[in-house]
Design a protein around this nucleic acid. Structure first.
Lengths: 207, 207
DNA sequence: CCTACCGATCGGTAGG
DNA sequence: CCTACCGATCGGTAGG
């Protein structure tokens, strides 16, 4: 886990943490330099601009979400199973780097064009794939829900709220979070009761 | 609805819209002045500082949320009914002013002390009251959920995601959003199936 | 509500 | 990676 980071990676990681805590706009290049122990001007040997850091974080995270979803969807199954896997994949990416996730979720609006438009379209495509699974589940009778779009919204709300409370040393690990989330979401979605197969997990305390 | 606004209210409302779109830090007093059609210096005849506007918005919204919850909880009933009413109250406040809600939910971190601490403690108390209803529902058997804290988190995630997609002229009005949200959340919470009593509502299209 | 202005800080560059 | 510095802009004040 403690791999050697290039200076550029160090800058990106430190900036991400600052962007998360203070926000992109309120973080100055001098704040960043200070956290790195160098002068502000020196940062520019490694990156072109402050916004470039934000771009890299946002699009790297987008890539990670897509990759995880691709892997999750490469396995066949019922709509329920596929949704569960998609949720688990999303939670994994989210919890693996909470700072980058927070930046991805909240600081993207400081992207300038054409990055902003591209970011928005990536998000749309990603959400569309979840909506597709739900649509299938509705049409084959697995899910019973008044509005497919609303259901997708609910899933993403639960998913993207995680970074606000998740602590790596908390009582739930990412797998348990995903299972609990799926359980809570699916029992609301499921028409017939395979509640027992969704098994919400109880707490083990690792610390 | 189109009441006469004092200059101070005008400033607050315009600032709120800008804070929502650009964020607190990225909004300058010159941006605000420009939107109002006056000079930046003139704003200071009405307010003491940029942060004062943020403080007013955050604590006014906190007050509105508490007032709505007080009213909702003044009516007795089962835990299910009380949770439904609390959710509806929250949705009402949220949708009544989406800009102020967005600022309340995302810009509070730019509050300085002691306001930050007070804000955080207000939120904690508010969430605690939802947690209390859930706790009661669990202990009297209405709800079946592995973790009370997790359930509360899920409710707030669904609740506080609304402002990102809610459109006043969309196909769901606040009451319908609340009912759909309750339905989706409660059927996940409910042990016995009073699904039919929760009645998720279908779309009427006002526009 | 304006003009005129303040010191501080911003993102970023030149040149080594 | 640093020193030295740039023009622009920041939140805010004085005085009317």
């Amino acid at each position: 886990m403690e791999a050697v980071l290039s200076r550029k990676e160090q800058i990106e990681r430190t900036a991400t943490a600052l962007f998360k805590t203070k926000g992109f706009s309120a973080t100055s290049m001098r704040d960043l330099a200070n956290a790195l122990g160098i002068e502000a001007a020196s940062i520019y040997s490694h990156i072109k601009s402050k916004e470039e850091i934000l771009q890299r974080v946002c699009f790297r995270m987008a890539q990670e979400f897509f990759d995880a979803l691709d892997t999750a969807e490469s396995i066949n199954g019922t709509a329920t199973e596929r949704l569960q896997r998609a949720i688990a994949a999303h939670v994994q990416v989210l919890t693996k780097n909470t700072a980058a996730s927070a930046v991805f979720l909240h600081e993207w609006r400081h992207l300038s064009e054409p990055y902003l438009t591209e970011y928005l379209s990536l998000r749309d495509r990603y959400e569309g794939r979840f909506r597709e699974v739900i649509r299938e589940g509705i049409s084959n009778g697995e899910f019973s829900v008044p509005d497919e779009k609303f259901a997708t919204l609910m899933i993403f709300s639960g998913l993207n709220w995680i970074h606000t409370w998740y602590k790596p040393d908390g009582k739930m690990n990412p797998e348990e979070i995903a299972e609990n989330l799926s359980a809570m979401l699916l029992t609301g979605l499921n028409n017939t009761q395979h509640n027992t197969s969704v098994n919400p997990i109880h707490l083990n305390t690792p610390n």
